[in-house]
Amino acid sequence: MSADRLSVYEAIRLRRDVRAEFTGAPVDEDTLWRILDAAHRAPSVGNSQPWDFVVVRDPVTLRRFADHVAGKRVEFRDALPPERAATFEPIKIEGIVESGTGIVVGYDHDRGGPQVLGRATVPETGVYSAVLAIQNLWLAATAEGVGVGWVSFYDPEFLAELVGLPTGIRPIAWLCVGPVREFQTVPDLERFGWRTGRPLSEAVHRETFGETGFNAEPSTTNARVVPPPRT
């Protein structure tokens, strides 16, 4: 392991949903494979590994998906109240073309057979497993100085047809993946005034919901800040 790699805590703090910071250079094949390997090592219910990863780099496909997403963005904006539409307007929601690489994460509910250990009473654990793979991918990418942007303004049927997903495999995410100039220190939705985060102390409960028992959050002021390694 390279000494200049980020710790997992540093990668978690540095990770951002990247939109406008892609350099335009493609992520190299070795780095891409390491990132996908990290995703494939995610935990999964019943060891079913219900994910598939479609790597998209064809400029025509990237542009087709970007145009589709742009249309969905307009639909969302037009459905907002005027004041929220004004806040939303400057927010960039994707970096599909700029990143140069898309990774479509698919979910196969039938992977692992009809008796998936641990999924009998909570069927959603299969989707949760695919999302854990995305989180692994995202943190590994951050440690490599590679940005990831999760695009969710699309019709699933359009995306499935665009990348040729077989019947039964559901698209979970389009991830824009590529080297970045920087990682923003403040998430875009906070910077543009859409929504701020809430403190950890409001999210942690003791024994029953609503009982916090915490007076202060752990300090993160001494965390080492490391610039993303260049690829």
Rank of each mutant, 00 (worst) to 15 (best):
L6I: 10
L6P: 02
R16N: 07
G24I: 08
A25P: 04
P26T: 13
V27R: 01
D30K: 10
D30M: 05
L32T: 09
R34D: 15
L36Q: 06
A39G: 00
H40W: 01
D52M: 10
D52Y: 06
V55C: 03
V56F: 05
P59A: 09
T61C: 10
R64D: 12
V69A: 10
V74G: 06
R77W: 14
D78K: 12
P82I: 09
R84Q: 14
A86M: 08
A86H: 05
T87A: 05
I91P: 04
S99V: 12
T101W: 11
G102D: 13
Y107S: 03
Y107Q: 09
D110F: 02
G112V: 11
R119D: 00
G126S: 01
G126V: 05
A130N: 11
V131N: 01
A143H: 02
E144P: 07
G145S: 05
Y154T: 03
D155E: 12
L159V: 13
L159A: 11
E161S: 09
V163R: 00
R170T: 14
I172K: 02
V177E: 09
E182C: 08
F183C: 05
F183H: 02
L189V: 15
E202C: 12
T208E: 02
G210D: 10
T212M: 01
S219C: 14
S219R: 15
T221P: 02
A223H: 05
V226P: 04
V226Y: 04
